[in-house]
Amino acid sequence: MTEIFGVPMPVLLGQILIGLINGSFYAVLSLGLALIFGLLNIINFAHGALYMLGAFVAYWLLNLLGIPYWGALLLAPLAVGVFGVLLERVLLKPIAGLDHLYGLLLTFGLALILEGVLRDGYGSTGMPYAIPDGLKGGFNLGFMFMPTYRAWVIVASLAVCLGTWLLVEKTPLGARLRAATENPTLVRAFGINVPLMITLTFGFGAALAAFAGVLAAPIYAVNPTMGANLIIVVFAVVVIGGMGSILGAITTGFMLGLIEGLTKVYYPEGSAMVVFVIMAIVLLVKPAGLFGKAS
């Protein structure tokens, strides 16, 4: 059997695959964080909780209403997006313009509430969510066995990331969004409804997180604490990439997932820490982040 640095090829490829899947979640979440930060100047600590909420909505849709995976993939982001819109209007709007810290603290409180309520109702052991029928099994690539669902997660995340990138960089709506990120007051003077844009951006970011949550549900169990641990890694990803560019957030997300997967093969004890170590190195070498603008 082919071995690379003493590791059998299938094991290595399997871990790379898992790394890419984690990378997809990092990418989709840090993308949403970057969009929200751009317009609202808030680091959304509740982003992990919204991701978790997405998985829970999928679970409820299936078990309470009998709506299967494909419906959930559409409805859960929609529902969480609407929830995000409400959050922005009711809670975040009143603190717009205050120090960044208040946004962080408020959304941290939100994350605690969401996590606490669901832990109260469902405990901290996860609930399984079955892989949808069409995506069960796998196919042989010749050099490795590829589980269909995992391939789907990577393809779907990439598609959503690229779609968002196209939306922001290549459409008239995206141009307005970018302008409002640069200078909201001026854009408002041109008669563009910036407050609405801010609300919808937060909703869109929330929907992105929920989409990742639905994708994650069949891989990891649906669990109230699934978002909390992820969000800290995503924060490190954001520090590494810098929040200046969308493509930067996507690239950094996938890249770090991949590195994490490789670490799991060659130095398993370090796999939980490697992202943080990379963050420390990046802070030393390029404090603004790989894709950030120097401050």
């Binding site: 409180g109 939100l110 605690l112 509430i113 606490g116």
Partner: peptide
């Protein structure tokens, strides 16, 4: 946890 979250907000 819930109460702490509410206090934060």
């Amino acid at each position: 946890t819930i109460l702490q979250g509410i206090i934060f907000v």
